[in-house]
Design a binder for these strands. Structure first.
Lengths: 169, 169
DNA sequence: AAAAATTACTTTAAGCTTAAAATAAATTCG
DNA sequence: CGAATTTATTTTAAGCTTAAAGTAATTTTT
């Protein structure tokens, strides 16, 4: 409510900001650290164990959920990456035999992309192991803590989306 | 041949996994979505508003906390990025006049890097605004929710670190 | 002190990523 | 219908990122 006097952390030596938004900043840095840490570990294991990159794995994960294939635009939205990024990613996965691309029959601009049989097999065997890694990485959280974290992240996501409205999106 | 033994639900996805680690997977995906979403927005605003990239901003943020400078290795550890990555990043920031690098007087392998006056001024003006963006992005969370999230993320971080021990780190 | 190991950093090659501009097909509108 | 707009994708240029290999300085070991 009313602004309390701000307790100056002993180790913090920066200038006092007009409003004390330090807490949100610390929260953001912790969230980022968490996801960077885990993402890095997953990336490392995917490379060491399967010689695959995370972006490729993610792309295959999306396609595994859509047996009939998806367009590049759909993929782009789901993966939250740019269209141009996807072009190269798909190119490489087609070359390696994991993906198949075909011009859509209803729209000659669009392409349907989907996993080949080999791609699907390989993905599923990776996914099974991947799921175990994640379970282990989050293993110290109780069922309740997982549930709470899930809820708080959902709320954070909504808050962020709300804040983005009007600005540019 | 024998690979049709599994009854495939028409619209639902894949095979039932040996152990149900779906929840952890969903939790991880939500965490990742959250940080990707926010990171993307910050990246966009830094570019639009200040014509600076997030990695450069992050690097300057580290140096702002160390007025006497840091070595590349210190930066590398703190930022959780590779040494090689830092070399290029620092190069560009030196060229643009934001950073100063000097060979350490006590160790001729090492370099001390620090913000120039101009770099510091520019960073601080960006940081003030940046802090407001973060506060807004997390704005829908109550004080208690922020505290809870902070705690759960700390626990997640520790859990992940524990899981990494032995594997490669 | 010489050899071995470690540490700090750079270089390289490959891939990821984006924004912006370009191309082409489809849709909307006058 | 034909022009203008939107949508789907590719290309380009620049920068980020990593792992692995290389160089050089320091520290440890023998």
């Amino acid at each position: 409510m009313d602004d309390q006097t701000i307790p100056l952390d002993a180790e913090t030596k920066a200038v006092e900001m007009p409003e004390h938004h330090r807490d949100e900043l610390r929260l953001w840095l912790r969230l980022l650290t968490c996801s960077t840490l885990i993402e890095g570990e997953i990336r490392r294991r995917l490379r060491d164990r399967f010689d695959v990159t995370l972006p490729r794995f993610d792309l295959m994960a999306q396609l595994d959920k859509a047996p009939d294939g998806m367009t590049l635009s759909d993929l782009s939205k789901r993966m939250m990456v740019s269209n141009g990024n996807l072009t190269g990613l798909v190119d490489r996965l087609v070359t390696s035999g994991h993906l198949e691309r075909r011009v859509s029959e209803t729209d000659r601009r669009a392409q349907m992309v989907r996993l080949t049989k080999a791609g699907q097999d390989e993905f599923r065997s990776m996914a099974a192991e991947h799921e175990g890694w994640i379970a282990d990485l989050f293993g110290d959280l109780t069922q309740k803590e997982q549930k709470d974290l899930m809820r708080l992240l959902a709320k954070t996501k909504n808050s962020a989306r709300r804040a983005m409205m009007g600005g540019s999106q």
